[in-house]
Each structure stands twice: as structure tokens, then as C-alpha cells.
């Protein structure tokens, strides 16, 4: 079964007088348990593709399936519910709610999912432990390093055990050591829980962790390499 399937997806932006083909007839399929890097230079279409897969952006044409469920024709509300239950997101740094502690940031999403308070708390504590933040649960984002903040974001993304985690330049604001640690965390989660990862990046170091590397240029897939 495939975690993600895109069939002939197109997306065009207008910038000034020019049409930008951010996605130009893109078709890919990612199996469950995949660990995929999307790499492209700036403006190559990787973020657009990631957003389309995550239901944040609706393609102009083509079909997108998550867990064999077609999503490009869903409403905003249905997409939000889908993201909440099936997809975890990790963005660039500074994506936590600044006034909530690490634990509360993780719990907030679960609360929206309707998890009851006791379960929420124990899940949050164990997931923070799993991402290596034991003892830091009550810190606010401003009291943590960039790497720690990203770990909270990862914890928040995976706490509800989504089948698919989408990460957009997760290491953009991290130094190389912290980047490595984050990627090792991703690899671990991929192996232990079978979570599918799709990571958009132009960091070679990140690409080296991927089992599969998809290269894009001008909205087209130009290379699709399996790595060991």
C-alpha cells in the first residue's frame, strides 16, 4: 500500500507577468515506511509539492492520494481534519506557540484531537522523553535551543502516531551537529514505528540519510534514486 500517490499534478503561480510552473505534471508514489528526501534548488517546487501532499495547497490539476484516500477534492475543513489525524508536520524553526511550554505545545494538538487530559499528559511526557527532551517538559520555546525547539516540533508531529510526517527544511536554522541529531531522530522513528517521512531540503547532509532521493528542477522530477 502506498502512503502517498501523486498522479500528473500541476500547479502554476503567477508572479508579475510570468507564469511559474511550480509543479509540472508530477507523478510519484511513496510506499508506507518510506524515508524520502525531496531536493531541489530554491523555487524548484519541493515546498509546493510538500504542501500539496499535506493538503495545504490545492493543485490545479492531477490527483493526490494519502493512504489511498483522494484528497485534492476535499474541503478546507476535511483537509484540516485529515492533517490533524494522519499527517505530522515539521517546519523550519520558530514554529512553536511561544507562550506554551514544551509539554503544552505537544498537548495542544492532542487536545484538539479530543484526547482526554490524563492520557494527553502521559503521552506528551513519553514522546518528549522519546525525542530526548526528558526534564525539559516545562520549558518555554524561548528557553530552549533551536535543536531542542525542533525536537518539540517533532514530538508534536508524531505524538498522534501519524502514518506520514512531512518536514519542510527542518534543519534550515540548525547547525550541522544539531542537524545530524535531528536526522538520526527521524531515522530512528522511521525504523521503530514505520512512520513514512517526506523531507524537503537542499541540505546534502540531510539527503544522505534518505532511503530514496527525489530531485526536482523547475517543477519537474528529474531524478529518483534509491539509496542505501
Amino acid at each position: 500500500m502506498s502512503a502517498v500517490r501523486c498522479i500528473d499534478v500541476c500547479k502554476t503561480y503567477r508572479q508579475g507577468d510570468e507564469d511559474i510552473h511550480a509543479l509540472d505534471h508530477v507523478s510519484i508514489e511513496i510506499q508506507n515506511g518510506g524515508f524520502v528526501c525531496l531536493s531541489a534548488p530554491s523555487g524548484g517546487g519541493k515546498t509546493t509539492l510538500l504542501n500539496a501532499i499535506g493538503g495545504l495547497d490545492v493543485p490545479d490539476s492531477g490527483e493526490i492520494y494519502i493512504d489511498e484516500q483522494r484528497i485534492d477534492n476535499l474541503s478546507k475543513g476535511e483537509l484540516a481534519a485529515l492533517r490533524l489525524s494522519k499527517i505530522g508536520f515539521v517546519f523550519q524553526a520558530f514554529n512553536l506557540i511561544p507562550v506554551l511550554s514544551a509539554r503544552e505545545n505537544v498537548e495542544f494538538v492532542m487536545q484538539v484531537q479530543g484526547v482526554d487530559a490524563d492520557k494527553r499528559r502521559s503521552l506528551a511526557m513519553s514522546i518528549l522523553d522519546e525525542v530526548g527532551l526528558a526534564g525539559m517538559e516545562e520549558r518555554r520555546p524561548a528557553e530552549m535551543s533551536g535543536g531542542q525547539q525542533q525536537r518539540v516540533a517533532v514530538a508534536r508531529a508524531i505524538v498522534s502516531r501519524p502514518a506520514l510526517v512531512l518536514a519542510d527544511e527542518p534543519t534550515a536554522n540548525l547547525d550541522s551537529k544539531t542537524s545530524d541529531e535531528l536526522m538520526e531522530l527521524f531515522t530512528e522513528l522511521n525504523m521503530n514505528h514505520g512512520t513514512t517521512f517526506v523531507i524537503a531540503t537542499h541540505d546534502r547532509r540531510v539527503m544522505s540519510y534518505a532511503k530514496r532521493l527525489i530531485k526536482m528542477l523547475d517543477g519537474r522530477i528529474v531524478d529518483d534514486i534509491a539509496q542505501s
Binding site: 490533524l84 508536520f89 517546519f91 506557540i97
Partner: peptide, 13 residues
């Protein structure tokens, strides 16, 4: 705006 954008991306209506 940014903060709300992220929360919406996470699936919060």
C-alpha cells in the same frame, strides 16, 4: 499570522 498559519497547517481549524 505566522503562528496561526502553523497551527492551521497542523490541522487546527
Amino acid at each position: 499570522t505566522r503562528e496561526f498559519g502553523i497551527l492551521m497547517a497542523l490541522g487546527i481549524a
